[in-house]
Design a protein around this nucleic acid. Structure first.
Length: 342
DNA sequence: TCTCTTCTCCGCCAAA
DNA sequence: ATTTTGGCGGAGAAGA
C-alpha cells in the first residue's frame, strides 16, 4: 500500500461454509454486505469484499440441498481478515458442528477483528472456545442444547443479536440480516445501515401481507398453547389496559409467576411483547391505510402520537414519519393501497 | 423539553 | 433435597 490512500481498504468478510449449512444464514448476511458495498461505491465510504470459503473449496451442499460455490480457506492465507461469519446448519434443534471448521476457526479467529455466529453457527463458535464466558444467542429451538453442551458460554434467548466483545451472535435464520446491519452500522454509521435496511426491507416486503403476529412471536409461542392463546388475546385487545398485572390475570397466574414463566418460556418480557404487537398493528395500519399518525396511534393502542413515536424509536430506530416515507417509496405493486402525502 | 409519577422487571426469600 | 411459587422492594425505564 502506498503512503496515503484516499480510499479506505476493503474490509474482507469471510463466511465459512460446511455441508448442511443453512443457506438463508449465508444469503441474509452476504446480501446485506453486498448492498452496503454497492451503496459505498456511490459514496466515499469504505466497502466490503465477501468471500465464501470452505475446507476444500468447490460446491458445498446446503441443508436444503442447494449447492453454493466456495473457495478453499487456504486461499485466505496472508490476507487480512476483517470479519469471520459462521452460519448455522440444519436441523436447528440438533445442529451440525463440523470439527475441521471449528479447528480452522480456533486457528484463525485471532486474525479477525470480529467473529460472528448466525443462528446455530453459534455452536461452532462455542465449540472453538471463543465464546467462553461471553453472552451469546442462537436459534430459539437450540438455545437449551447450546447451554447444555457448552456450560461455559452464557446462552441468552431474548435478543435478536448480541455483541459481547469481538464475538457477535444472532438468533435464527433471517436474524442474520439484523446482525449484518448492526455490523454495518458499527463500520459505516447509522445512516448507511438505514439505507441498506431500506433496500433490504423493500426486497423482503415484496412477498406480501404482514402476518397478524410477527413471525418471531408466532415461532416463539408455537409450542406453548397457553401463551400462544394469550398472544392471540392480546392482539385482539390492543386498545385495552395491557399492564402485566392484567395479563397475569388473563393467563390465570400470580403476577410474579407470570412474569417469570413468560420470560423463560417465550424468551422476552411481557411488556416487550405488548409493545411489539402494538407495533405490528401500527405498521399494518400505516402500510394499508391512509390514517394520520394520530389515528394510527389510537387504533394500535398507543393512545397518542408521542407514544407511537417513542415505540418506533425504541423498537425500530426510526420515527414513524421516516418509516412511512420508506413504505411510500416502495414500488406501488408491493403495496396494498396508497397513502400518499408530502 | 423537562419534571414528576407510574410501571416493569428482576433479585431476594420464605413458603409450598 | 430440589424445584416452583408469589409477595416485597427498588432501580431504572416508560409514560403523563
Amino acid at each position: 500500500v502506498l503512503g496515503t490512500t484516499p480510499m479506505a481498504a476493503k474490509r474482507l468478510i469471510v463466511i465459512v461454509l460446511f455441508d448442511g449449512v443453512t443457506l438463508m444464514d449465508v444469503v441474509s448476511v452476504a446480501e446485506a454486505f453486498e448492498i452496503a458495498e454497492r451503496f459505498s461505491r456511490e459514496t466515499t465510504l469504505g466497502s466490503y469484499e465477501v468471500e465464501l470459503v470452505s475446507r476444500d473449496g468447490g460446491a458445498i451442499r446446503s441443508w436444503s440441498g442447494m449447492a453454493v460455490e466456495t473457495k478453499p480457506w487456504s486461499q485466505l492465507d496472508g490476507r487480512p481478515i476483517d470479519t469471520i461469519i459462521v452460519p448455522g446448519g440444519g436441523p436447528p434443534e440438533r445442529p451440525p458442528v463440523p470439527g475441521d471448521a471449528v479447528a480452522w476457526l480456533r486457528a484463525n479467529a485471532e486474525r479477525a477483528r470480529r467473529v460472528c455466529g448466525v443462528c446455530t453457527g453459534t455452536f461452532l463458535i462455542a465449540a472453538s472456545g471463543l465464546a467462553d464466558g461471553r453472552r451469546v444467542t442462537t436459534h430459539w429451538q437450540a438455545i437449551g442444547v447450546l447451554a447444555e453442551q457448552f456450560p461455559l458460554v452464557m446462552a441468552d434467548a431474548d435478543p435478536i443479536y448480541v455483541k459481547d466483545g469481538r464475538v457477535w451472535t444472532s438468533a435464527g435464520f433471517a436474524a442474520g440480516i439484523d446482525l449484518a446491519l448492526a455490523l454495518i452500522e458499527e463500520d459505516e454509521g447509522h445512516a448507511t445501515a438505514v439505507a441498506v435496511a431500506k433496500l433490504l426491507v423493500m426486497f423482503l416486503k415484496r412477498p406480501g401481507l404482514q402476518p397478524q403476529l410477527s413471525a418471531l412471536l408466532r415461532a416463539q409461542s408455537a409450542d406453548d398453547p397457553d401463551f400462544s392463546r394469550l398472544h392471540a388475546w392480546i392482539a385482539e385487545h390492543l386498545l385495552e389496559d395491557l399492564r402485566v398485572e392484567r395479563l397475569a390475570t388473563i393467563a390465570g397466574m400470580a403476577t410474579r409467576t407470570f412474569e417469570r414463566q413468560y420470560t423463560s418460556r417465550i424468551g422476552r418480557t411481557p411488556g416487550r411483547t405488548v409493545a411489539e404487537l402494538r407495533m405490528d398493528a401500527a405498521i399494518r395500519l400505516m402500510t394499508s391505510s391512509g390514517y394520520s399518525l394520530k389515528d394510527v396511534a389510537r387504533r394500535a393502542g398507543f393512545q397518542d402520537e408521542q407514544n407511537l413515536r417513542r415505540a418506533f424509536l425504541r423498537l425500530r430506530g426510526v420515527t414513524p414519519e421516516m418509516f412511512r416515507k420508506q413504505v411510500d417509496e416502495l414500488p406501488a405493486s408491493s403495496r396494498h393501497s396508497v397513502s400518499q402525502t408530502s
